[in-house]
């Protein structure tokens, strides 16, 4: 029994070829598309119109939570739950609270950045169909891939394959 088709994987030898192909694929109306590159390429992200990342919103939320949590912890412990007169300093010594609150803000914002990035990317993800393609290991070395998923409304096994080969790629079928 053959496994269902995930998509067509096109392999390019240079970053320039991939960027050109990405523009063509977007112009061709394909939407369920992804590229695989050995390093981050802004040009490809722009060419495929992947839009802006949502990480900054999560970081803002994390930072606000860290600030509120850090400040709240200090206020509650020092003023409400356990007020201690130390050297006559005010219980609500807000200038002193700035430092730990700043640190918790940074801590929560950084955790939000990393965990948010992982969540948005769906990591950890031990299995993905593109790994079934024998040459895909070079995507983390020196090859550039572009994948059009079978789920794309415009996808047609023959026509899409022809289209990708026309862009100068070696095309392989990726199975689920």
């Amino acid at each position: 029994m053959t496994r269902p088709l995930y998509g067509l994987l096109a392999e390019f030898r240079s970053p320039g070829d991939l960027v050109r192909a990405a523009h063509e694929v977007h112009a061709g109306g394909y939407t369920k598309v992804d590229a695989y590159t050995p390093y981050p390429m802004e040009e490809v992200i722009e060419a495929l119109h992947l839009g802006h990342s949502h990480v900054p919103k999560l970081v803002l939320a994390g930072g606000v939570a860290g600030l509120a949590g850090g400040w709240g912890l200090q206020y509650w412990t020092s003023v409400i739950d356990y007020p201690m007169n130390i050297g006559g300093r005010a219980f609500n010594a807000w200038p002193a609270f700035v430092v730990p609150a700043f640190e918790t803000t940074v801590l929560f914002a950084a955790l939000a950045a990393v965990l948010g990035m992982m969540a948005l990317n769906g990591l950890p993800q031990p299995y993905h169909p593109v790994f079934n393609v024998p040459g895909f290991a070079t995507a983390s070395r020196d090859r550039f891939f572009l994948c059009i998923e079978a789920a794309d409304p415009k996808f047609d096994r023959e026509a899409t394959g022809q289209f990708l080969r026309g862009l100068g790629a070696e095309v392989t079928e990726a199975e689920e």
Partner: peptide, 18 residues
């Protein structure tokens, strides 16, 4: 399971910069 996806790099680069 990192695979160098452009969608992943998009979030990754933003997270790294932040």
């Amino acid at each position: 399971g990192w695979r160098g996806s452009a969608r992943h790099w998009n979030n990754y680069e933003m997270a790294y910069l932040i």
